[in-house]
Design a protein around this nucleic acid. Sequence first.
DNA 1: CAGTGGTCTAGACCACTTT
DNA 2: AAGTGGTCTAGACCACTGG
Lengths: 242, 242
Amino acid sequence: MSSTRSLQYRVLHDRLKKEIVKGIYKIGDTLPSENDLCAATNLARSTVRHALLQLEKEGYIVKQRGKGSIVAATRRSLGLLSFQGFSASVNGSSVSTLSVQVPKISPWPSPFFFPLSIEEEHAGCISFSRVRKIEADRVMWETTYLPNLNLPRFARTFKVEHSFFEFLAVHHQVEITGMVQEIRAIHADVRTAKHLRIKKGDALLVINRKYSTSRSSLNIYSTLYCNTNKYAMSNSSGTMPS
Amino acid sequence: MSSTRSLQYRVLHDRLKKEIVKGIYKIGDTLPSENDLCAATNLARSTVRHALLQLEKEGYIVKQRGKGSIVAATRRSLGLLSFQGFSASVNGSSVSTLSVQVPKISPWPSPFFFPLSIEEEHAGCISFSRVRKIEADRVMWETTYLPNLNLPRFARTFKVEHSFFEFLAVHHQVEITGMVQEIRAIHADVRTAKHLRIKKGDALLVINRKYSTSRSSLNIYSTLYCNTNKYAMSNSSGTMPS
DNA sequence: CAGTGGTCTAGACCACTTT
DNA sequence: AAGTGGTCTAGACCACTGG
């Protein structure tokens, strides 16, 4: 199924990852110790360690000497610009989502902001659109586009209020593996101004993103219009103290 | 000197890293093979591999089965927003730098856009400012701030036309280890408009950054005003195909 | 073909955390 | 003291690259 033949560390890694994603191990739980895993799988410890190191690199667990391998947030979000960590915790502020357009099938917008493959072009496009709020402020208008490809019943089963990436992981075993984005400052047009409750001409941040996924034919695209008047977009990378 | 005691994989890692940074191994060169390194260091192969895996994770080398460990770009630049790779290659377009303010010692701007430690506050501030051009277009006005701390003769020796991070690495053995940034869209004020040759009120992208370095007391701060009318800012993370 | 890195084993000792 | 992950050894076989 998944490209690689049967590398033993891969098999163990995949098994543990599935168990984490499915919730058999919950955030904060401790995985079986390396020695336990050795005993259970009949693998050498370095092989078990290799599997765990992969999981750690992917952000699924954190290893702590003397304690064990502890399940971390199910999903990393490295390098993504976000409102200080959007869907998750924004300093305890209440975050909410308004549906602007439920998933619908349509042709790709033209011109599109990233070049499309023939396969994608051909498949047609599913798009949906939503507005994100922090407290009472409308801070972001987001439209997501994806090819209508091997995602049966998607348009009917996805609820716009949920996390899209979580939905893909749980229902389609699709994970985000990379992202490229392009950022500009523009003046708001009438339509955008209306969605974000600002004035036409106000300064606005627009981000065009392309996500690659674990399914090589599936890329996901999105456009974000961000009102940064009150909340800035932020991100970090590398190791920052405290 | 460097925190860790004398882990053997660390020692080898540090040695190879220095040799790469100093140019003993140049970009594209192949490092000695794992077996050669084993022989030269009297270490087991897995220990040598551990050292090389660290280097790979940091972006100094790329390992290729059947070929060897190949030296990659001396410096990763993960997650940094840039004009499609600024100082380096912007599609062959000619990039240039104008000096607006040579390094000078002054108090920290107040209010500053990131909280400062007492030590930093105390040390005073060195700042300099420059405008970046692509072809004839002024695309970015950048001001950099750093504490006047353990960098003897910096204000006199640094030339604003050079790469600041390269200067720090070569002359002060300081490396960037992480970054956090905050991004907003604003309307240009008169001063910024003048530097970038745009009209007051034009939409502008402003980025405030804090870099942490390998010297724990030394953080570097910068503010970037970007005219994204013609050139967007972009970056990528994770693994993107092609 | 020889040489490279990738996987894997079966041990060992150490540093740290918890009981 | 018992259990955890971190480091390290000295082997082995495999898959891939190049001459």
